[in-house]
Design a protein around this nucleic acid. Sequence first.
DNA 1: TGAAACCTTAAAGCCACTTCAAGGTCAACG
DNA 2: CGTTGACCTTGAAGTGGCTTTAAGGTTTCA
Lengths: 151, 151
Amino acid sequence: MKIGELARQAGTNPETIRYYEREGLLQKAGRSDGNYRIYSSAHLSRLNFIRRCRNLDMTLDEIHTLLHYKDAPQENCGEVNRLLDEHIEHVARRITELRALESELQRLRDNCNDETRAASCGILNGLSETPLREGKTDCHVSGTHRWDDRS
Amino acid sequence: MKIGELARQAGTNPETIRYYEREGLLQKAGRSDGNYRIYSSAHLSRLNFIRRCRNLDMTLDEIHTLLHYKDAPQENCGEVNRLLDEHIEHVARRITELRALESELQRLRDNCNDETRAASCGILNGLSETPLREGKTDCHVSGTHRWDDRS
DNA sequence: TGAAACCTTAAAGCCACTTCAAGGTCAACG
DNA sequence: CGTTGACCTTGAAGTGGCTTTAAGGTTTCA
């Protein structure tokens, strides 16, 4: 199987696969006569593992750790459990933050209901006054702009 | 006021301020004899506006747009309203996604309660089997790893 | 034969900064 | 006067997780 076929089967794209190889997440593939990468079903299942973890918003570093334990089945899995616990906490924290954000934005939005002159727009005026919030927690869940804004 | 003082007052740091200047969000400051940037309270309030918007997870592009209307108070503020509506929707969508993520992670976590051999760890095995979810929506709220992981 | 679909590499681009390197300025202290 | 140390300057590179671009090589089918 060549890289394009692997990409199709895993629902990702060839550049991403080459990137994972460079980063050492995916073992190097053998090459065909024409220097094309040739993959087996073992590559596919490892790639699927990686993509599942990415869908769960894990970093490549975290995935590296998980792959280590997959490759060392005799080791104790305590670190895997802890990694997941921490990750769940990060997600939970980010949800809390985004909810606070949402209500703050909604409050701001309610300040202007008609299209008026910018000078008297309650939103712009609100943004000029709202106190700066402190306390971005040490949560690693990120902001509002990760994926392409195709909407 | 020099850049360090401005940074302190706005709760940000000098490099960020220079970056905003390069990006055209903050007007260029005058210079002292020794070529230091000198700021006024007008700079401070504009910087505060920008930081408030960033705290609300807006992109620099969105902030550019808002600043345009602040600078043109006679224009109609309809675009400001729409920008906020879209932004609120993005945040709401990301919250929904993260909640789904959280329950999926929790389900996975429940598969392994003791420290055992990695080979029989329900988490690793779960990650090897869970179907790949489709449908990352076109939400631009980002993942779980935005801020430093200082925890 | 030749065009289309696939593959290769290396490098740059994305966002919103942060960090680094190498140096210049300024006030205070001995 | 010299020097220490806090502050400032610029430009370039690094962050993460890719995506895009450029410039080509290979394979397949008509």
